[in-house]
Design a protein around this nucleic acid. Structure first.
Length: 382
DNA sequence: CTGTCATTAGTCAGACAG
DNA sequence: ATTACTGTCTGACTAATG
């Protein structure tokens, strides 16, 4: 009665950039980059001609959020500093991120998939896992039908991997991007998965990859061939055993269709690094603003929090966090501000600061009427 | 009575990801 | 020179509890 699991991973192609191209079809085929705090919206000139900002006109902080495949061909990828990408692709078009639009299209494509397959796990704004096990239709036809539903609903393309588990499907959705379908069975693991770089495995990031490289392990196949005792010796028991399993394509995580958030946070990087004394007023204002916005987020989403934390990133990029667990749940901005202020007393303030963040953890569903914060004057933290 | 051990909560850092 | 923001998970360590 138990049929073998059949799991899909669906990944939207260059999602943010593709959404922008729906608005600006004249940019199709051009290198386009989305990102940047100071990116300029296109303007319309006297002749009714749209004017787009170029990468080489950008100045300031910020990173590439997404780039079109044409921009990627020039070496511009997500996460790259904009100033660096401007050197590689000075003439590329730069657009500011429009998260409202992305959330809109995210809802549209997820609803479209749900109409075809009901077991969907949300994995952020542009990807999902789908459990296809209980659907009586062969994988190629099903994958094509899902892709068609997504395109019909959004005008956007996606790539899909279908395999016996999430781990392999995540790898496979990337193998034929963009607009691809990859279907893989366990007997194809040696031929198609083992030649791939170890860092293709979701969970092996830069650090683990570098450590593996130092052990002369570069591919998933080499990882599969490594003695498990050696992996355990290097990475610890949990991670070592996990590395051995995933290298053999083993993963039994279920598709989880519902989940509750564990934390909600707000953080911001300043235009310039701020000095705790010299810029005290500005820091205080930003800090209070973050707390208030976090309070709004909690209220809007219907949660109260018992653990409030802060995060600072110094000029040299080192990060510190402090948190405080309270005797009672709180949800309003003023109470968050007070708790976060307590945390702030415990951090070093020798260096200039480039980022400030506030986080609410230990969440529980808020009781309908939150108690307003004591109106006592909270002392200024900076 | 003292020391050890297991367990849990809290705190903080770091890795990773979309 | 440049390096966002939001969120999850895990490991290490400490303190408290029994």
């Amino acid at each position: 009665m138990d049929r073998p699991r059949r799991i899909a991973h669906l990944d939207m192609d260059a999602f943010f950039a593709s959404v922008e191209l729906l608005s600006f079809p004249e940019l199709i085929g051009h290198p386009v980059v989305v990102g940047g705090r100071n990116a300029i919206l296109p303007t319309t000139d006297a002749q009714g001609q749209k004017q787009f900002a170029r990468l080489n006109q950008y100045a300031g902080r910020g990173v590439v959020t997404t780039s079109t495949y044409e921009a990627r061909a020039l070496g511009v990828f997500s996460g790259m500093g904009l100033m660096k990408s401007a050197i590689l692709a000075p003439e590329a078009i730069l657009l500011p991120a429009n998260f409202e639009a992305y959330r809109h299209y995210s809802r549209l494509f997820k609803a479209a998939v749900l109409s075809v397959a009901p077991q969907v796990e949300d994995r952020g704004i542009d990807e999902i896992y789908i459990d296809l096990t209980d659907i009586d239709e062969d994988s190629p036809a099903l994958a094509r039908r899902i892709k068609q539903a997504v395109t019909d609903a959004t005008g956007l393309s996606c790539s899909i991997g279908v395999t016996p588990n999430k781990l392999l499907s995540k790898i496979c959705s990337d193998l034929d991007k963009p607009d691809g379908i990859t279907i893989l069975s366990v007997d194809e693991i040696p031929g198609r998965i083992w030649p791939l770089a170890a860092k293709k495995i979701n969970g092996i990031g830069p650090k683990a990859n570098q450590k593996l490289a130092s052990m002369n392990i570069h591919t998933i196949g080499e990882l599969a061939a490594a003695p498990v005792e050696m992996l355990v010796a290097q990475f610890g028991r949990t991670t070592g055993l996990w590395l051995n399993r995933v290298a053999h394509g083993l993963d039994d995580r279920p598709v989880v269709t519902e989940s509750e958030p564990k934390s909600i946070s707000r953080e911001t990087t300043f235009e310039r690094d701020l000095h705790v004394k010299h810029d005290r007023a500005m820091l205080t204002e930003i800090f209070t603003g973050l707390c208030m916005r976090l309070g709004d987020d909690l209220a809007r989403k219907g949660y109260a929090s018992r653990t409030i934390g802060i995060k600072l990133k110094y000029a040299d990029f080192t990060v510190v966090t402090r948190d405080l667990t309270l005797p009672v749940d709180i949800s309003d901005g003023a109470a968050i501000r007070k708790a976060a202020g307590e945390c702030l007393r415990r951090v070093p303030i020798q260096q200039k600061i480039r980022l400030l963040g506030v986080r609410a953890g230990s969440l529980s569903p808020a009781c309908a009427q939150a108690i307003p914060a004591g109106s006592g004057q909270a002392d200024l933290p900076f």
